[in-house]
Design a protein around this nucleic acid. Structure first.
Lengths: 232, 232
DNA sequence: ACATATCAAGTGATCTAATCACTTAATGGC
DNA sequence: GCCATTAAGTGATTAGATCACTTGATATGT
């Protein structure tokens, strides 16, 4: 199993597609040649080409739009990806995931407090405005707004790799996050904790932003642990 | 582009494959039914099935072995993956990646010092023994041993999610790591720094392990920065 | 009895040629 | 100018076949 399998034609096609994207200077969103043209250009049949395309699609390098064409995907420039096949997180994994966030996100909140630009700050506020608008109602929208808040904070830190890591962690346990949101005994409390993080970032108080973020995530972890001990 | 594309048959097949793996209680390495059987069972043609299989293969959920069969892949249980399409890291990204490692790996070294078990410690030592054997010779082997050291340290920390993150970061910039190894002015120095980390972990000195790891990675970053300022 | 070589069966990999389903742009009518 | 229809181009899938590889079984030789 440690042996490298013999390269297939489909492997070679994947490489050639990546090269075509790179040498063509294509950016995410750019349209690529059609499958008919590509299969001709590479002298292969469309089912074989499509195998390569599906592979690239699965990793976000391209998007196939039925009837429209093939487009370069946003994830082509990423280093780290969320596993798209994750359907259910084991309980032990969930706690480890929260611990990972507890290790990574507080220092990022501190960096965000140091780097805060006005546009990014506006995005952060907007996310919390959205969240506050949904406090009394829609679960999905509240959840999205809260995740946007965490993502925006990670982005503000100015390290794209760590932002990708946080994004991946948030993405991969979206369903569990929704469940956590539902068992968190006070949506208001969650929101208030987010607000204290925002205040610290606005005040450029790195230490406080870090401490607030850590307290928030540990609060979440505590709630999850309690839930695990007394499932309802 | 924010619209969810219409689900294809191939999408559905991907889901059904994941379900088959899950409900079958399959573990990584287990053999799955053949493509002929699967295409019959799912009532689709083999090119369509193969699109789904390629998608799963790209994300490590399965392995296709020509002439042998389809096997469950190790990455099926992962949350975070290295982007397999990454061929070249931009310079700015490389520094951010090193910063990400500087944020994540030192606390993991501290955790490793607290959790060190005898088997894991042996693996760590083995990695450094391997590295010392290749100090005067093979680049690839030295590189592999050094990466094994970092991976083993992250694993010892006992958080599988963070281990995946570190593994992803190390995997995705393997080529750059090799280059860094070549420009690092003293292989001995690199090795010695690894040894001080090992000593701290053996001594269960969490603070020192963390400090040694941070110093080591910042040393690496410094070298890279110098290289960027005066390319050779 | 054991080791080696050969063959058969089962496996993944790719092709050919076609049809189906969707999107977008162009054209015509009001 | 707006709306509806049509045509062209696009991705999605099929059916049926052949090719390339692996593994296990069988036969042969020592």
């Amino acid at each position: 199993m440690s042996e490298v399998a013999r390269p297939t034609l489909s492997d070679a096609l994947t490489e050639r597609m990546l090269e075509l994207i790179r040498t063509g200077g294509h950016r995410p969103g750019d349209r690529l040649p059609s499958t008919r043209e590509l299969s001709q250009r590479f002298a292969v049949t469309t089912p074989t080409l499509r195998e390569a395309l599906r592979r690239l699609e699965a990793t976000g390098a391209i998007e196939l739009r039925h009837g429209s064409g093939i487009y370069v995907g946003a994830a082509i420039e990423r280093l780290v990806l969320p596993n798209p096949n994750m359907r259910e997180i084991r309980t032990a994994q969930l706690l480890e995931l929260l611990d990972a966030r507890i290790l990574i996100e507080p220092p990022l909140a501190a960096l965000a407090a140091r780097h805060a630009g006005s546009e990014e700050l506006a995005a952060l506020k907007h996310a919390l405005d959205e969240a506050s608008r949904h406090l009394g109602g829609e679960d999905a929208e509240l959840h999205d707004a809260n995740m946007t808040f965490h993502r925006a904070t990670a982005r503000m830190a100015g390290n794209s790799v760590l932002h990708e890591v946080v994004d991946s962690l948030l993405t991969v346990h979206g369903p569990e996050q929704r469940e956590i949101q539902q068992i968190f005994d006070d949506r208001r409390r969650d929101h208030d904790e987010h607000l204290t993080i925002l205040e610290a970032i606005e005040a450029r108080d790195a230490a406080r932003a870090e401490e607030r973020m850590r307290a928030h995530l540990m609060d979440v972890k505590t709630v999850v642990e309690h839930r695990m001990k007394s499932p309802r």
